[in-house]
């Protein structure tokens, strides 16, 4: 996991550098960061063995609504 986080940190850093250099909109950088962090969080849940299962969430919600 350490390697994964390190790799991602470097990759995100590189991406940000490129983005700033080519003058991407601030909004775009923010959205990009938001989705990357979401993905990263998801991957960390996988590595820590507390897998986030979207289907579980959906089925729980549906059961809750009672469909």
């Amino acid at each position: 996991m350490i390697w994964f986080i390190l790799f991602m940190a470097v990759a995100i850093g590189l991406c940000l550098r490129v983005m700033i250099r080519v003058r991407t909109q601030t909004k775009e950088i923010l959205v990009f960061l938001a989705f990357v962090l979401l993905g990263l969080a998801d991957w960390i849940t996988i590595f820590t063995d507390h897998k986030f299962k979207p289907t579980h969430l959906i089925s729980m919600l549906l059961d809750f609504v009672g469909l």
């Binding site: 775009e28 959205v31 990009f32 989705f35 990263l40 998801d42 897998k51 979207p54 289907t55």
Partner: peptide
């Protein structure tokens, strides 16, 4: 959809960001 919602002109970075998210979510089944 993301580009339209946030009015972003270039798809490149969003596409890259989604690879991480989609591949992560795809692991969400045992």
């Amino acid at each position: 959809g993301i580009c339209q919602l946030f009015k972003i002109k270039n798809r490149f970075w969003i596409t890259i960001a989604l690879i991480l998210l989609i591949s992560g979510l795809a692991m969400g089944y045992d």
